[in-house]
């Protein structure tokens, strides 16, 4: 009888030397607010409420990176 292999089983077969790691979603997405994760997911993956206004999420992130506490923080220095 043929049995369908899971993606994980296939990966192990192809890479027997692979190291198995389980990552909980809360850890992966760095939700410091673990208690609010479910609502956070709705906000991340669902539909934003106001779709005739200004989605400031990217802009706020950008502003924070450039100036988290009135100090200029050059992230490019971490890059290439």
């Amino acid at each position: 009888m043929k049995e369908k292999l899971s993606t994980e089983q296939i990966a192990r077969a192809v890479h027997p030397e692979s190291i198995n790691v389980h990552v909980p979603i809360e850890v992966m997405w760095d939700s410091d607010r673990l208690a609010g994760l479910k609502k956070d997911i709705l906000g991340r993956l669902g539909c934003l409420a106001c779709t005739s206004g200004f989605d400031i999420r990217w802009r706020a992130r950008r502003d924070y990176i450039v100036n988290p506490s009135l100090e200029i923080r050059e992230l490019s220095e971490f890059g290439r």
């Binding site: 760095d30 991340r44 934003l48 989605d55 990217w58 992230l75 890059g79």
Partner: peptide
């Protein structure tokens, strides 16, 4: 465009953070 950037950055947090690290915010 702001809406699209907001949705991408919220739904792919690891990738976006890595891209910022590698290339800078601009």
């Amino acid at each position: 465009a702001a809406g699209r950037s907001g949705r991408v950055s919220s739904s792919l947090p690891l990738t976006i953070e890595l891209l910022i690290s590698l290339f800078g915010i601009d």
